[in-house]
Design a binder for these strands. Sequence first.
RNA 1: GGGCCCGUAGCUUAGUCCGGAUAGGGCGCCGGCCUUCUAAGCCGGAAAUCGGGGGUUCAAAUCCCCUCGGGUCCGCCA
Length: 569
Amino acid sequence: MMFQKFIEEVCDILKTVARDMGWSGEDLSLDYYDKISDVSSSLAFKISRKDKKNPKSVAEEIYQRLSLLKDKYDLIGDIKLIGPYINFYVGDKFISDTLKEVLNRRDDYGSLNYKGSIVLEHTSANPDGPLHIGHLRNSILGDSLRRILKKAGYSVDVQYYVNDLGRQVAVVVWGIENLKITNNNIKVDHWISQIYIKANRLIEEDNDFSNNNKDIDILLRKFEDGDKDVIEKFDFVVVQCLRGIEQTLNELEIYIDEYVRESQFIFNGDVERIISRLKDTEYAYFDNGALLLDLSSFGFEKDFVVTRSNGTSLYSTRDLAYHAWKARRYDDMIDILGADHKLISSQLKTVLRILGYKEPKVVIFEFISLPEGSMSTRRGKFVSVDELLEKVREQAYLEVSKRREDITELEKKEIANMVAIGAVRYDIIKISPDKPTTFDWRDALNFDKRGAPFIQYSHTRACSILKKGGDFSNPNFDLLRDQNEIDLIKLISRYPLIIKEATDNLRPNILANYSRELAEQFNQFYKDVPVLNAATEELRSARLALVDAFRIVIKDSLSLLGISSPEIM
RNA sequence: GGGCCCGUAGCUUAGUCCGGAUAGGGCGCCGGCCUUCUAAGCCGGAAAUCGGGGGUUCAAAUCCCCUCGGGUCCGCCA
């Protein structure tokens, strides 16, 4: 937390000076990510406006006053004036304290003391086929957040909400019975999607199968009425499909704590109970037998449908019951949802508020589309995650083989796997969730860019040095005064702040960016600063310690993105 | 038609919430660097009307208004 302590000192000294100059505002106009200094302030502009003086002379006065107080602060080194900008630089103590903290806390470095329980819902893809690369953005966002939130100190449970009574499942059940598509040894979720696609086509074409739609409705009706045989058939499809999906997720190091079945909220009476509570609110009204909520006072044009005219529940009603259930069990809820859920999720929040429940925080991500258009499981227009992984693995294996002829086949495969998974995860997580993107095979298979392999490689470089370097005892960090060393340490000192920002904003891409920058900085250091052949034994030890600190942080930050850190590549 | 999101070099992306000092990366392109810790690396170069137009401000990629292009939602579907 050295960087935060440094910021606190800067705030304190600046505030003291500002008060003395009659500035009562809270805003100190700090810029943490300044390229010129460690922290800068443009406060002079603000004060000059008030005093009607020119910014530069105000800055000079601030500077004079800062200089008098500076010695009382431990971590502040230099303060420099560039025009009207006041630039703060960390001092020597900051540098060595940062390294001490990293080497003492090891894996724990960067963790915060956030408290509370969170239920994080992600993926929740319908069990009608394999995961495709659109779902992947959801899964990877969710899993990275799970890791980051845990690092921040929360206890996190991950749930996959299973739509096990939707129309799609009924379509698959119908398809299994009527299409007789045999599974010739393909992964079960892919087999299910074949049935789903074909069945949908027949239903849409509606020629010889004019009764198909009716069949589907009958299946759904029977399910809700508790027909044992139909429930079993639905269950078979759901369980099988989920098995395939889970296998894919696990290959990507994504783990689900609990699969929550939507139907349970019907069977246990929760849905019924929530409907009757909604009926008693002031927003409720009936239209042709259907129960609706008038949410116009909350700014919604469309009313919220609670039950159909025939009394059955809708997806959103059951989702409401699910969220109420979660709200009772956890301090906080987070949902990862695609952009198509924006409206419905804000309606859900509103209704939860009406009922007196806390609302989930919703992380929305925009879609990944294919060059030829948007993806659709129903129409079979998608690239499956399994296919993507297979191709990326293949390419990664070629890349490893190209560089390493000295290692065993098994080692090559292991490294290729780590690199492939890292590449896939990184390429998705590095992009801001609210950016719509188009999937591109050429880019996905390109390893000559600053993606995960680049970062992983910097880690192997550190490992290699440490392996050859042996023990370093009582390193004297005061010897680390090369610009490359200082820049690397400063970046390492930012790590806890990065964790905080990624957590507070629920934005893993902040961390992804940081990891890349940290790797770049280490590569600089690697090139310019000899470690094993340092001028003196003492310097060698100090540098080994720095390399170790880097190794700890880069490995930890990659792990928060679900990317493993190979020791050789 | 209305709501929300996106629009930054040939392509791709950070920065936008909380306005500040020459708009960061990457891919591709051009030119260099392996007798020293693995070159999946490093250095240099060309390439940007920050979609367009107004406005606010000492200062706008960032805030406000208008506008164009793309996505998405506006089902008693999920």
